[in-house]
Amino acid sequence: MCVTCGCSDGAQTTYTPVGLDRGETPAAASTHTHRLADGTLVTHTHAPVHPAAAPAQGHHHRPGQPQGTHLSLEQNLLAKNDLIAAQNRGWLRGRRITALNLVSSPGAGKTTLLVKTIQDLQGEFPIAVIEGDQETTQDAERIAATGCPTLQVNTGTGCHLEAAMIERGLEQLNPPPQSLLLIENVGNLVCPALFDLGEGAKVAMLSVTEGEDKPMKYPHLFRASQVMVLTKLDLLPYVRFDVDRCCSYARQVNPDLIIFQVSAVSGVGLEAWYDWLRAQR
């Protein structure tokens, strides 16, 4: 039975593969029209139960087997996460809290920059931190040493934070109204790109000790971010890293990316980063 209008998939129905080039008109599309009880006309095409012409991999014919019931779902696989993220966004907006989702590979200097940022800015406005790591509370302890309210979320084998973790984190941490909430994601340049947490912006961090072509190699994350912070600039004299080339790669992946170049150790570039943080509130 069709879940759109309740019509039955009879033997006369032909089934058409979906997901082909949008421009093509499938030869045997089973487009038909129904009139519902209230007079509404519904014209629709049944998606395939029997994708004879489908290029899909791994599909098997089962001759002689009776036709099953076909359910058209069209459900986004990230819908549940996105819904919770939207709830988080509302929760944060109601309290005028600005949340940033900080993403990078392990060792890019997220925690060091966070500690420095908190030390320099917490006199101006309240800051709270949700710290995501697979194991240990070491990063949270480093941050909590600044006096800032901090919650460690250990994901175990999970390689990224999800919106539901932030939902629970917000309940426990209860960051004060009008604060800046910094969410340090698990060090990973792939998975966090897919999972909205309800943040105002994703901030990708990349250190000059990594490859300058990382934005090209991990485009999903740099595409999903609004900001890139290039860290450890004090190490530039010791490493082969072309800053201009890196920025040009990053802008090719994401032309709207805002880029900051900083060193939490020497202090270079921090004022521009801080100004941007202030402007987000």
Partner: peptide, 20 residues
């Protein structure tokens, strides 16, 4: 221009299923 919007290729859907 590098200002290119992605209009197809990011789908992530359970489109349909068949049950007994």
């Amino acid at each position: 221009s590098t200002q290119v919007d992605i209009i197809q290729g990011q789908e992530l859907n359970l489109k349909e299923m068949e049950i007994d």
